[in-house]
């Protein structure tokens, strides 16, 4: 397997008028092609910061980030941020419009994605008419539209209730596996991390440093919902739970 991404000693400091905040320090990690990685950690520790720096929204303060030469990043932000004046199809085409690769072929690809993931009847609807789960799927397809191979997902399911959360995470898992994507996902939910990902990175309190990394080895790996019933599931759950410093 090739490395899609190598991170060495990443450091990020935020500067504002009154403060400087050390958000991430000494963060080193390699990501293999096709791997699903989860990042968990206490809230405010710097998880979103890592993704923002990786995709170039924020400048790093120090360290090294090396991408494989044909890595294309897709960043799915925590909020779906659909444009309410564009219909679903046009929302999904936004990225293609921006990098000027919108043509009949790429448009058909997006329509096919929408069809495959149960949004065929909503192609010309507006975001206001969609449920939270559908909106999240649209946001994912918008991210997939430009055909990235490395996906950064920031708490992609946090806006959902438990039931839809399970269903959508199964959906999205299948979409990404089928398309052979590599994924880094930030989440608060330990069960979600274990059930969806190959590796789980546990971060310390801010500034985020790597506390531990778990290779998730289940008896028989299948979809996230089934993985939750796996024998080894609770073993990892307890371990990770203890690793995260929860402050109540």
């Amino acid at each position: 397997m090739k490395n899609v991404l190598e991170i060495k000693n990443l450091k990020k400091i935020y500067h504002t008028k009154t403060h400087e905040t050390l958000a991430v320090e000494d963060f080193s990690f390699d990501v293999n092609d096709g791997e699903f990685i989860a990042i968990v950690g206490p809230s405010g520790c710097g998880k979103s910061t890592i993704l923002s720096v990786l995709c170039g929204l924020e400048e790093k303060s120090d360290g090294e980030i090396k991408f494989n030469s044909n890595t294309k990043i897709g960043y799915m932000l925590q909020q779906d941020s659909l444009f309410e004046w564009r219909n679903i199809l046009d929302n999904c085409l936004l990225g293609l419009e921006i990098n000027k690769t919108l043509n009949e072929e790429s448009k058909m690809r997006v329509i096919k994605l929408l069809t495959t993931y149960g949004l065929k009847d909503f192609i010309y609807s507006y975001p206001d008419n969609l449920s939270g789960g559908m909106r999240q799927r649209v946001a994912l397809i918008r991210t997939l539209a430009t055909n990235p191979n490395l996906l950064l997902l920031d708490e992609p399911f946090s806006a959902l209730d438990y039931q839809s959360r399970l269903a959508i995470s199964d959906d999205i898992y299948n979409i990404l596996r089928k398309e052979k994507k590599t994924m880094i996902m930030v989440t608060h939910d330990i069960a979600e991390a274990i059930s969806m990902c190959d590796k789980v990175i546990v971060l310390s309190d801010r500034p985020a440093r790597i506390k531990s990394i778990y290779n998730i080895e289940l008896e028989n790996k299948s979809t996230p919902i089934n993985n939750r019933k796996d024998k080894n599931f609770s073993y990892y759950y307890d371990k990770i739970w203890k690793d995260i410093d929860f402050h109540v």
Partner: peptide
């Protein structure tokens, strides 16, 4: 204009020109 929408545009690699005509202007209609 919502900060997250701007972030989204930037994450898609939008130029300032695209940011204005695809987000800021239609959002302010």
């Amino acid at each position: 204009v919502n900060e997250n929408k701007i972030k989204l545009m930037k994450s898609l690699g939008a130029s300032k020109y695209q940011l204005f005509f695809k987000l800021i202007l239609p959002n302010s209609l």
